[in-house]
Each structure stands twice: as structure tokens, then as C-alpha cells.
Design a binder for these strands. Sequence first.
DNA 1: TAAATCATGTAAGAAAAAGTGACATTGAAT
DNA 2: ATTCAATGTCACTTTTTCTTACATGATTTA
Lengths: 129, 129
Amino acid sequence: MKEKELRRSLAVLPIGTVMRLTNLSARQIRYYEEQQLVTPKRNEGNRRMYSLNDIDRLLEIRDFLDEGINMAGIKHIYDEKARKEAQKKAQLEKPLTDRDVRKILRDEFMSVSGLVREDEVSFKHNKNF
Amino acid sequence: MKEKELRRSLAVLPIGTVMRLTNLSARQIRYYEEQQLVTPKRNEGNRRMYSLNDIDRLLEIRDFLDEGINMAGIKHIYDEKARKEAQKKAQLEKPLTDRDVRKILRDEFMSVSGLVREDEVSFKHNKNF
DNA sequence: TAAATCATGTAAGAAAAAGTGACATTGAAT
DNA sequence: ATTCAATGTCACTTTTTCTTACATGATTTA
């Protein structure tokens, strides 16, 4: 299903359409870009062009904001996501060591939000888990 | 899968995007509309807005033209298609009579292009088939 | 072959959409 | 009360799109 992936990442929508589809103002959409939460392409005439993936991202941002999360928080979420993606991809290159497997397992546990409080660092730092 | 149907019929693309996606000139795209081969929506500012279905239609038109079929021919093809769609929908309302079933079967045969020559009208008109 | 028609190109002028940059506003946190 | 984050608004410019009209090359038709 590489085809679908491609279609969803095609930058074909002007900002006017994105406004209607997301119920966001042009100001908001451009501001989120300024905050590096979305990175639309530009056409030859310097007009922003968005993909369906961009739309999804913007809808998600809108939801996060509605939940009361601020820009910094959202930025953090996406940075984390990108970091994990990159790491996962890197792992696929090299075979996993036992140590890697344990680390991944541990990370999975840690990312179950709310299970562990921020100040419970001892467990977090126990490399022998 | 009504969801997908909806997405494909959403008018979200400006003509510039359609040009890039189809490799057709604005002039061509507008001309095909003039010939009623496509019927894009308009936004509040009177700009043409196209759906993914419209894109498919335009690509198909381009292929027909490449095959040497002219506007009238293409128009005929789509008129036929629309006619059959309408008929099929109408049939779904009422239960089918035996006669209807035979007619549908016959039409199916007739629409297998090339099987029957244009001048072989006797078979075509034999209502007892 | 001359004339008409088809499909497309092109140009002009107007209107709409989108760009940037600056300043204003509002609500929440300090 | 001040600051800051998120958004609104305005001014001015560039790009895109619209419509209308006329031009052109390739086919059809008379």
C-alpha cells in the first residue's frame, strides 16, 4: 500500500481549502508553521500547498489545543514522535542486541502515560531492568 | 465504505493543482467543462474547485483523446454511462420482471465492444432474445 | 480546394486568493 | 500590573483564476 502513502503526502491543497477543511484561520495555520508544527510545500509562485497528511496534522493540533495543551507541549509531542521514528528506523538497519531489546521494552512501559510519575526516577534509571 | 466515496467527491482542488496532476492546460480543462464532460463546483469567489473524482474523469478524457476519440465520442460514452446508471437505479426501486432480466442480459452482451458490428441490427432488434 | 468546425493557444483586464510584515487584542500565568 | 502566547486585523504586493475575444493548425465537409 505504497500508493496510498504517496497520495496522502501529495501537496495539492491551497490554504483556503485547508481553512475550510480544518476550521482554522489562515493566521492560525501560518502560525503553526512558524512554530514548526507543519511544513507545507510551496508552489512555483510561493503559495503554500498542503497534503492530506498536513490536514491530519492540523486537525490533531486543533484537538491538542482544545485539550489545553500549548504550542510547546505539542511541539514536544511531535519531537518525541520524530525521535522514536528515527530510532526505530535506525534499529531496523542493525540487528538488535539483547540490551536493545530490553531498552525498547522498558521505553514501551515508560511511555504508558500516567503509570509512572515524573519524580519516580529511580526505576527510570535502573539500567538492569 | 461510504467514507471514501465522500472524500473522493469533495471539491478541494484549484485548477492549478489539477493542471499539474493531469498535465492538461487550463484552457483544456475549461473547454472540457464547456463540453459538459466535467462539472466542477465553484467556491464563494467563483473559482473552480475539483474533486478526486473530477481528476479521474479528466485523466480518462485525456486517455480517450489520446486514443483519437473526439469530444462528441467522449460525450456519448458518458451519456451512455449516465443513462445506464439511472436505469439501474430505477430498476432497484421496482422488482424485476422476467422481461427486464432478459433485456438487461441482452444489453450486457451488446455492450461488449467489437463483438457485434454496427450494421448487424437484426439481432439487436430481436426482442425475443 | 475552399470553407467550416474542432481543439487548443494566447492575450487583456478584472477580481479573488495568498504572501509578508506590523501592530492590536485577549486571556492566562507570573 | 506586566508579560507572554495565540490570534485578529490591516496594508500593500504578488500570484492565481476568471471571462471574453481573437488566433491557429488540423480535420471535415460542402
